[in-house]
Simulated assay, not measured.
Amino acid sequence: MYEKILVPTDGSETSEAAVAHAIDLAEKYEAGLHALYVVDTDSMSLTLGGEQLDRIEQGRFGEMEEVRERAERATGYVADRAAERGLETVEHISAGRPHSQIADYVDDNGIDLVVMGSHGRTGVRRALLGSVTERTLRSVRVPVLVIDED
């Protein structure tokens, strides 16, 4: 049923719950597993200068060592958990608007299923911060399994 499963991760506990589901499904369907970390350039643009932001969007983190380490830790978590079950993982880091990067990755890599966490924000927090999960649901044309943090 599924040949390639994508788990977008930000390294949070909610993402880790989604990872567990993605790994179970990858094992059950003998599917390839992909881990994607997106550096959210929209939120970073508030604190970074234009030149720094351009380098990040091009995948050149330079002095942004913290960002690279956080991204590698998040995708590495997926790969490590999958390896415990004998599964290989494709790890990828990109930069941009998370829902757009997820949709592009789905299209470019023939992904059949996206498994992602939802932080469950509501009200003003959701209006101000938006919802990557909601935007992803609207942006992709494959099934999306949403794992709530509760």
Rank of each mutant, 00 (worst) to 15 (best):
Y2V: 11
E3S: 15
L6W: 05
S12I: 10
S12N: 15
E13S: 11
V19L: 07
A20N: 13
A26L: 02
A26K: 01
E27L: 07
K28L: 15
K28I: 05
A31K: 03
A31V: 04
G32P: 09
A35D: 05
Y37P: 11
D40M: 05
T41F: 01
D42P: 05
S43C: 06
T47M: 12
T47C: 04
L48P: 09
E51K: 10
Q52T: 15
L53G: 13
E57N: 13
Q58R: 15
Q58M: 11
G59F: 06
R60Q: 15
G62H: 13
E63S: 12
M64V: 08
E65Q: 06
E69V: 12
R70F: 08
R73T: 06
A74L: 04
A74K: 03
A74V: 02
T75I: 06
G76Y: 12
Y77W: 09
D80I: 00
E84V: 06
R85M: 06
V90K: 08
V90S: 10
E91D: 14
H92I: 02
S94N: 07
R97P: 07
R97D: 14
P98G: 11
H99G: 09
S100P: 02
I102V: 11
I102F: 07
I102L: 05
A103L: 03
D107N: 12
N109R: 09
I111G: 02
V114K: 00
V114T: 03
S118W: 10
H119G: 07
H119C: 01
G120E: 10
G120I: 00
T122L: 01
A127Y: 13
A127Q: 11
L128R: 08
G130R: 03
V132R: 02
E134D: 14
E134K: 06
R141I: 02
V142A: 01
V142K: 01
V144K: 04
V144A: 08
V144P: 04
L145S: 12
I147V: 15
D150I: 06
